[in-house]
């Protein structure tokens, strides 16, 4: 497995831990936290994906050496 995929997998694991603990912190009731979790996961990883795209576009536009 290449380094990129390993790092993506590690990011997925750490992101899941961060979102889950953040959800638990936000809501003390298990039932409500469980309902909240998918939307929080989606916003976190969706937001990260948008950030990656913006960074790649910026890199391609302003910092490409070619």
């Amino acid at each position: 497995m290449s380094g990129l995929w390993v790092h993506l997998l590690l990011f997925l694991l750490m992101g899941t831990a961060i979102v889950t603990l953040g959800t638990f912190y936000a809501d003390a009731e298990d039932g409500r936290a469980r309902k909240l979790w998918p939307r929080r996961m989606l916003s976190f990883f969706g937001g990260c994906a948008v950030l990656v795209i913006v960074m790649l576009v910026c890199e391609h536009t302003f910092a490409a050496l070619g």
Partner: peptide
């Protein structure tokens, strides 16, 4: 202390 549990703004 009989306080309300923390709830998110859902």
């Amino acid at each position: 202390l009989g306080l309300p549990l923390k709830r998110s703004e859902v």
